[in-house]
Amino acid sequence: MFLTHVRAAGTPLAQLPVLWLAVTGTIEWFLDNVVGPIMDLLAEVLGAPMLGYPFMQRAYLAAICIAVIGPLVGTFLVHREMAMLSDTLAHTAFAGVAVGLFLNSALSLALSPLLTAFVVAIGTALLVELLVEHAGAYTDTSLAMVLTGGFAVGSILITATDGGISVGIDAYLFGSLSTVSTANVGLLVLMSLVVVGLVTLTYRPLLYVTFDATAAQAARLNVRLYKRLMVVLTALVVVSAMQIMGVILVAAMLVVPVAAAAQVARSFRQSILLAILAGEFAAIAGVTLSYNYGVAAGGSIVVTALTVYVATLAVQKLVPSLRRLGRLRPGHSEAGLKADGGENE
């Protein structure tokens, strides 16, 4: 018995659960011993007791992670004019959640619905990309069909069972702070490390393919691979952020901060940094508003992000007029961020 166990643990597949336990263990330790005390300290210093509550600590950490990976991947997505893909994948991820809940109920399993959501969203992302490779272009119609189709399958699966599983669906649809478990945050932190790592590693080809895919192909970059990577990253981000943002609103985190940053950024690298800054502001302010007024977190984050967008739009319109008045000279308004996007890439 012991021997077979050891032998099984020797195969790479059997090591996965062990590895997973090690990872979640590390993250739990990190939450309890690093994030917790820091937040407790902040709670006292800022006089904000909510920062001391473990569920709010988890919510803030989750929001901070989402606001890094959402705008990071969203910047590539938006500038490839594929913003709708994030919304489509979010709605099919809902079907993934429903599949997980359905399987658990039907077969008495204990799968995490997030796991099935990842599988379904990544599968859909690759399917959409394959369809595009075949047809040559993203079309509104096909995305709308996949989006509604995913949602339809989800709603059927949820109503097909005895009703027991519809509990908790609201949390997935609209997002929720209180239902974010330690395991969820752990998964989100891990996903953030994976996404940030992959984007850092493939920043150059992703940028080239986003900007000029044909020239990238002529320069013998593996355009197909990077396009697929981009949609898979989108699926990862959307599912990771779904818990807090909700299925219906999660796409906003990949789009709104990016649109705001594109107004004022002087380079692509700067636009990523500014989008993440805008995202962080929206996420932290949104979670705080959500707690203080007892309103939905996802909605608060999106409304804050839209406010930032409107503000940048106003600044963008206003600054040139001010410059014309001679109060500002071009080149004097850029803060510490380096505009050329070059040397440290």
Partner: peptide, 24 residues
């Protein structure tokens, strides 16, 4: 038309010429 709305600098585009040799 390329990059009309994309915030990307002249230098960032010209640097792409080196990417086939220097992807990372």
């Amino acid at each position: 038309e390329a990059g009309r709305d994309m915030p990307i600098t002249v230098r960032e585009v010209v640097r792409m010429g080196r990417y086939p040799k220097r992807l990372v």
